[in-house]
Simulated assay, not measured.
Amino acid sequence: MSELPSPSARPSPSARPSLSERRRAETQLEIAMAAAELFAERGAEATTAEDIARSAGVALRTFYRYFRAKEEAVAPLLAAGGRRWVALIERSPAGPPLPQVLERAAVEALTPDGEEMARALLVTRRLLTDPGLRIVWQAVHQDSEDELVPALAARCGPAADPLEVRLAAAAATAAIRVALESWAATDAGTTGPGSPGELAARCVRELTAGLRLWGEVPHS
């Protein structure tokens, strides 16, 4: 599989999505879930874009309006947890140490709040065992890291060293990736011991322990 482009562009965190953007995101996620279910059942290699479009109830031309390759179709699903994590960090109150904010947000982002999220996590587990989706998985985490950099910079203030902000974002994102990949290799549930949330908390705590993290600025 050739290298795929980065998943779809995102609005800035402060921008409120328009109705058309929300509908676009909903359609993308519906297609992503259809693709994920088929990939989990058959594998990416045995699934075609036509199969995905048919399962999602959309025309093939609609599929290609949103995605340029069948593998890319699962990116919105794989990215959902990371975007939720960044949003939680951005909304968290000023005051707690940054490592604590990262850890709490990781647990909340990866702990199911209903059947739909639990199902998405279980589907994600099956996707992570498919070698054909490795490029998409890596691209999703690079995007997540890029989103986390300005969120951390805003919390740390203008005096923070940009290199250290970037290092913290890279370490925290790697912690989430390792936690999910480790969970996918087991039969642990979506909650409780060995769950994504528990492993994420441990990974974030251990990976950020040696970083120099700065005082935060109050939210406006």
Rank of each mutant, 00 (worst) to 15 (best):
Y64Q: 09
T124W: 02
R91F: 02
P112Q: 00
A118R: 03
G81P: 05
A200N: 01
D51H: 12
L199A: 12
D146R: 12
P17R: 12
G189P: 06
G215Y: 04
L163F: 07
F63Q: 06
R126C: 02
S195C: 04
A106E: 01
R205N: 07
C156H: 05
T48I: 10
S2R: 13
M117R: 08
R202F: 12
V217S: 09
R104V: 03
E26Q: 09
L121D: 07
D51R: 09
E90Q: 08
F67H: 05
E37P: 00
A160S: 14
G157S: 11
A25P: 01
L128C: 01
V149N: 00
G192Y: 04
I52F: 12
W85A: 04
L207S: 14
Q142R: 14
A201Q: 06
S6R: 15
R205K: 07
E3Q: 13
H141C: 08
G192Q: 08
T173I: 09
E216G: 15
R119S: 12
V86I: 11
G57C: 11
S6W: 13
T27F: 07
L88M: 05
R119L: 11
G132R: 09
E50M: 13
L213Y: 06
H141E: 08
F63Y: 12
R68I: 10
V178Y: 04
S12P: 01
P150G: 07
A175D: 06
R177D: 10
A79F: 06
V123R: 05
E30F: 03
L163T: 01
F67L: 05
F39G: 06
A35N: 00
A34L: 07
Q100Y: 08
S182K: 02
Y64G: 09
A139K: 14
G81L: 07
S195G: 04
F39D: 05
R84C: 00
S8W: 11
L121M: 03
H219W: 01
R119E: 11
T186S: 15
R104K: 00
D130Y: 08
I89L: 14
P96M: 07
R125F: 06
S18V: 13
G189N: 05
R202P: 02
P218T: 00
A185D: 10
A185S: 10
A15P: 06
R134F: 12
E145G: 03
A9T: 14
T129W: 04
E45F: 10
S6P: 13
P97S: 14
A151S: 13
E145S: 04
S144L: 06
T191Y: 07
D161K: 05
A160I: 14
R91D: 14
A87P: 01
A34Q: 07
E216A: 15
T208R: 00
P76F: 04
A40R: 02
T129I: 03
V149E: 05
A9G: 08
R54S: 09
D130E: 14
T191R: 15
A106V: 01
D51F: 07
T173W: 01
I31W: 03
P193L: 12
A175R: 00
P11G: 12
